[in-house]
Nucleic acid binder design. Structure first.
Length: 422
RNA sequence: GGAGAGAUGGCAGAGUGGUCGAAUGCGGUGGUCUUGAAAACCAUUGAGGGUCACACCUCCGGGGGUUCGAAUCCCUCUCUCUCCGCCA
């Protein structure tokens, strides 16, 4: 949710920025500013009425104390009209606040200057490409065939015990999962992130905090008995740890990492490109979440991008980094870099990480603040990224590292897997 | 699942209808003292809205009600804790 103070002062810049998403927000912003204006007028009037009412009440108290019954009763009579007026104004205030909030929540984040305009993947800007795209052996296979052949991942068993999109990992497949989780966590810790183990279910407040609710309600698994939601990413519980907090300067920046299983209903996304590990209902991911002072967030974003690039290089995977165009940008993001790994056998790029700076868009809703030099509270900037999501990494590892002698495990991972090839 | 207790500022904890945004202690910040630190002492210290700045308004778990007036009384919801039962 954008800050109203930002919109008041930067309305034209906001509208111009949103255009890069292919969104004409001119009228929306005007409506918001109008509502804001009305709201403040209404509050002014309401405050005055309340002040008057408070004054009279105090007066009545004094009169009673002095035993002046009759004067007190006379004063009481004066409040009747005031009370109905207050009630009206309060109702109006509620409505105005509600409308304002609704309009604000509906507006996506404003893309930063460096974000290219555009409305599809084609307009994303490739800023980096690393690693050679190897030519694979004649008989190279996609990962789902490799997984079946080596009994690494059992999609059939997952279907039997749960349903499609809930694979069972077996033998070296299971050990590879565990190795990758540990590898990512250890690398993140080395880079200064603190590890957390969050709950895998969250309450409604947390869902609202990170913006999954109310709009993406259908994407989360919901347990109605207890009104809990299965997390779609560790970002949700981790970021919500800091909800409604004013963080101490010495604790900043926050650099958190967490492994979690992630659950996504992926309603309506059946069809092409969902084969094998490409899209699952349950998958594993190691996430990084940062909170910084505003002036430090862009440097933090760069350092996160560098860190994630390092992970992919250690896994010896060819990748590229894209700066997403406005139209491809997530609702809450001001700037996003996508990491894509080349899937040799599928001959397509697979998104394995998305690193974003949300600036105050998330923290405004969650009221995550710090105390500035001026002793006042200010909103922090929030950032997050996957470091990394397992399924597509596994897909890329299997496909890219297949040789006639077997699937080779990258050097950096061997101390974690305990085996060198599959 | 059964029974009971509770929810107040960063924390602990008082406050049962008006002068309470709220005692006191701890913590934080600034200062005095000190070579420095500790201790002691003094001062200061919740959040949000509003304003050029004041004024002013709102907030004592959430919602509703009674009253001229609610942290305090009533209704309701949520959450937490303790004991018993079951159980990893």
């Amino acid at each position: 949710m954008l800050e109203i103070t930002y919109l008041r002062e930067n309305a034209t810049a906001a509208v111009a920025g949103l255009k890069k998403r292919g969104l004409d927000a001119d009228q929306n912003v005007k409506d918001i500013l109008k509502l804001d204006e009305l709201r403040r007028q209404n509050q002014n009037e309401l405050d005055q009425a309340l002040a008057e009412s408070n004054r009279i009440s105090k007066e009545i108290g004094m009169l009673f104390k002095e035993g002046k019954r009759e004067e007190a009763d006379a004063a009481k009579a004066r409040t009747a009209e005031l009370k109905t007026r207050i009630k009206e104004l309060q109702q109006e205030q509620e409505q105005l606040k509600h409308s304002l909030e609704q309009d604000l929540v509906a507006l996506p984040n404003v893309p930063l200057e460096s974000v290219p305009a555009g409305n599809s993947e084609a307009d994303n800007e490739e800023i980096k490409r690393v690693g050679d795209i190897k030519s694979l052996p004649e008989n190279a296979k996609p990962h789902w065939e490799l997984a079946e052949e080596h009994k690494l991942i059992r999609f059939d068993l997952g279907v039997k015990i749960t349903g499609a999109g809930f694979p069972v990992y077996q033998g070296k497949g299971a050990r590879l999962q565990r190795a990758l989780i540990n590898f990512f966590l250890e690398e993140n810790i080395k880079a200064g992130f603190e590890e957390y183990q969050p709950p895998l279910m969250v309450n409604e407040d947390s869902g609202f905090g990170t913006g999954q609710l109310p709009d993406k309600e259908g994407q989360m698994y919901h347990m109605p008995e207890d009104n809990l939601y299965a997390i779609p990413t560790a970002e949700v519980p981790i970021t919500n740890i800091f909800r409604d907090e004013i963080l101490a300067n010495e604790d900043l920046p926050i650099k958190a990492t967490a492994y979690s299983a992630c659950f996504r209903r992926e309603a309506g996304s059946y069809g092409k490109d969902v084969r094998g590990l490409n899209r699952l209902h349950q998958f594993d991911k190691v996430e990084v979440v940062c909170l910084t002072k505003p002036e430090e967030s862009m440097a933090m974003l760069d350092s996160m991008v560098d860190h994630i690039a390092g992970l992919l290089e250690k896994l010896e995977l060819p990748y590229r980094v894209l700066r997403l165009c406005g139209g491809d940008l997530g609702f809450t993001s001001a700037i996003t870099y996508d990491f894509e790994v080349w899937s040799a056998a599928q001959e397509r790029w697979l998104e394995v990480s998305s690193v974003s700076n949300f600036q105050t868009f998330q923290t405004n809703r969650m009221k995550i603040r710090y105390r500035g030099e001026d002793k006042k509270t200010h909103l922090l900037h929030s950032l997050n990224g996957s470091a990394l999501a397992l399924p597509r990494i596994v897909a890329a590892l299997l496909e890219n590292h297949q040789t006639d002698a077997g699937i080779m495990i990258p050097e950096a991972l061997r101390s974690y897997t305990g085996f060198e090839k599959i």
